[in-house]
Design a protein around this nucleic acid. Sequence first.
DNA 1: CAAGACATGTAACTGGTTACATGATTCG
DNA 2: CGAATCATGTAACCAGTTACATGTCTTG
Lengths: 179, 179
Amino acid sequence: MALEHAILVSLTEQAATGYDLARRFDASIGYFWRASHQQIYKTLARMEADGWVSATIEPREGTADKKTYAITDAGREELTRFTAEPSPREALRSDFAVKLRGLADVTAIVEDTRRRRADHVERLDRYEASAKRHYPDPDAVEERERGAYLALRGGILSERMGIAWCDEILDQLETRSDR
Amino acid sequence: MALEHAILVSLTEQAATGYDLARRFDASIGYFWRASHQQIYKTLARMEADGWVSATIEPREGTADKKTYAITDAGREELTRFTAEPSPREALRSDFAVKLRGLADVTAIVEDTRRRRADHVERLDRYEASAKRHYPDPDAVEERERGAYLALRGGILSERMGIAWCDEILDQLETRSDR
DNA sequence: CAAGACATGTAACTGGTTACATGATTCG
DNA sequence: CGAATCATGTAACCAGTTACATGTCTTG
């Protein structure tokens, strides 16, 4: 389970509320881990019980208290322990590949593939823009940003391969007649 | 949810017992969908209740009956319906990327990356061997095998990109001193 | 005769999703 | 004053994992 660890990594960079974390998971960390705010609040509660994070409470009237979470020493230890254990291979589950394998309706799959390709292109653009902005010189990435840079590179390579796959599929399935 | 649909695709090709399906999910279909036998039995029961598959029962003494499942017309309809709906983007969740992003222990990550690279190489070899054996001429793939071929191509591209990523990571993190 | 393949399951648990619910503050 | 953003949750459900459980048949 790595949601906990993704949160720990994020808190290492900067203390945050559940809401902040949810936004980070929509952006940079979301490149390789998605999480809803409900899931994040649930997980933070468990992590606090485990002593991996500690909350600073800011009472508010009329609504729930604001809680800002910071990583604890125990949390840092847990992160080190987690880093040391071998990562399991990602369980790959692709609805798209299942459809493709079945190839029940070529027209529908071509359509789906085009949609998918457009999505990859859009993400690739975002990632490349982000890379250009934050790491204009890849050979001079700062020590403490190296991890984030390499993770982003993974995103870029992954989107490029996605596009290449879509192109192969379209090349084989598209009839010359339509567009 | 696509386990049901992965099963339907598999049964379209050939009727099978739960045990057979579990083995198929360890092999070809397992390139893009993993499932344990427990999960498969549970899902088959639900699918039978939904009328998507029908079981031929072969009674056996002293142990549970053998059930061979075949896809029904309702199952084929469901598969068509599923193919027509747009595929959701895969939820990407990578323990490895979380670790990399945190970069808490460079030595541990280098080790993990090497392990990961070896795994990608091994899979790539298997996929390429399979491609060579089943589809020696990519331009002459039979109509009804096109889906399987394109899915396998996805696997190949994905492993290649995995290797490329590992190489970039190792290139940036490996000190010249070790190996 | 033992090991491994064939064959089917149950039970407890965990992580994640979807739907629902509430309320304050800020900015155009 | 209304929309967006900030902020925190609960409840019901579902899919998937892990551990446990059983028994036959085939082959070396």
